Computed example of a mutant assay.
Amino acid sequence: MQNKETFNFIPDEYEKFRPTYPDEMFDDIFCYSNAEKKDKILEIGCGTGQATGGLVGKDYKNITCIELGNKLAHFTAEKFKAYASIKVINTSFEDWNGEGSPFKLAVSGTAFHFIDPKFGYRRVWELLEDSGTIGFFWTIHVPKYDEIHNEIRSHYVELAPHLDDSKLQTPEESIDERRTITEDSGLFSNILVKEYNQVLTYTSNDYVSLLNTNSKHRQLSESVKNSLLNRIKNSIDKSGGYIHKDHRVALFLGKKLM
């Protein structure tokens, strides 16, 4: 199962347990892009339409959504069926013919990393109008080292050591890497990175349900995944039944370079 296909089988769980994107982020995107309500927006990898909802919440509804997963595309099409101006196209971004271009703004929420950047940034540049902008954003994992998180980390070390977050990139390294990729494309100027932080609280059940929507967890064998999630749930229950998670979103803005 490829990473970019893992969410297609769990649209309801993804919609229920994944945190939405911060409202102020959409304000920042539209302020930076100077997009008007009538302007055409391209969304790459819409999933269950969480980011789409953020756009619609700001009264921007002229949106073309590209989604590879057929179940996800159907979910989002149903979710926004009241808006005739929102089109959901079930195809890969690589195979899409660019119908409706040029666009004023291209956005992508925790999805653009599935696309080869050498192809992806060039293709987006081609699809944007001359004054077009990008607003790509990702949820960034923030490791914690308190008692409960260290105990949970020990379960990963034993059962899925490649997911031990103490061995992964730091949030700062992840953000710097994406900034560099964006800059090195040579296709966008005035690169601006903004971060949004909050602390989310989960019950043990909701937390393991959230983890079950993560692509790397879903690629584990069923036996390993079930053992891991059960151990995590038991650890949270023993510590009081709740866990606090630092939630960070990084937004990368850029203007089409002519």
Results as ranks from 00 to 15, higher is better:
Asn8Val: 10
Lys233Cys: 11
Tyr242Asn: 13
Lys16Asn: 12
Ile175Leu: 12
Thr133Met: 04
Asp59Trp: 09
Gly132Glu: 03
Gly241Lys: 10
Ala73Tyr: 06
Ala51Ile: 06
Asp27His: 02
Cys31Arg: 11
Gly186Pro: 05
Tyr83Gln: 03
Lys255His: 07
Asn150Trp: 01
Gly135Lys: 01
Glu172Gln: 15
Asn90Val: 06
Ala35Tyr: 00
Ile191Arg: 05
Thr139Asn: 14
Asn214Arg: 13
His141Gly: 13
Asp246Asn: 15
Tyr83Ala: 06
Leu163Ala: 06
Glu147Phe: 12
Asp39His: 04
Leu68Val: 03
Gln50His: 12
Ile152Ala: 08
Ile191Trp: 02
Gly240Val: 09
Lys256Arg: 15
Glu195Ala: 04
Thr64Leu: 02
Asp176Trp: 07
Tyr60Asp: 04
Ile41Thr: 04
Asp176Cys: 01
Pro22Trp: 03
Arg153Glu: 03
Lys238His: 13
Gln219Glu: 14
Asp246Ile: 10
Gly45Asp: 07
Val157Gly: 00
Tyr207Glu: 10
Gly57Ser: 06
Asp165Arg: 08
Ser185Ile: 08
Asp246Glu: 15
Glu173Val: 03
Asp95Pro: 01
Gln2Gly: 01
Pro171Ile: 12
Thr52Lys: 01
Val157Ile: 15
Ile181Leu: 07
Lys71Glu: 12
Phe80Cys: 02
Ser204Trp: 04
Leu200Gln: 09
Thr91Met: 04
Leu42Ser: 05
Lys238Arg: 15
Ser85Phe: 08
Asn8Gly: 14
Tyr83Lys: 02
Leu229Ser: 08
Lys225Ile: 05
Leu229Asp: 13
Asp23Gly: 01
Val88Leu: 07
Glu15Leu: 03
Phe252Trp: 04
Ser221Ile: 08
Leu211Gln: 10
Asn230Pro: 00
Tyr202Gly: 02
Phe93Ala: 02
Ser221Asp: 15
Arg123Ala: 11
Ser239Cys: 13
Glu172Met: 02
Ser92Glu: 03
Phe9Asp: 15
Lys144Cys: 09
Trp138Val: 10
Met258Glu: 14
Gln169Ile: 00
Ile63Lys: 02
Val56Pro: 06
Asn226Phe: 00
Val142Met: 12
His155Ser: 13
Tyr207Arg: 08
Ala35Cys: 14
Lys58Leu: 10
Asp130Thr: 12
Pro102Tyr: 01
Lys233Ala: 14
Glu5Leu: 14
Asp176Thr: 04
Val124Lys: 02
Glu129Arg: 04
His247Arg: 11
Gly132Pro: 06
Gln169Trp: 12
Gly241Cys: 08
Lys216Cys: 10
Ser166Arg: 11
Trp96Cys: 09
Ile243Gln: 11
Val224Gly: 08
Phe252Gln: 01
Lys216Trp: 14
Lys194Glu: 14
Arg18Val: 09
Ser185His: 00
Asn62Asp: 09
Asn197Gln: 13
Leu68Thr: 06
Lys79Asn: 07
Gly186Val: 13
Thr201Met: 05
His74Tyr: 13
Arg179Glu: 10
Gln2Thr: 09
Gln2His: 12
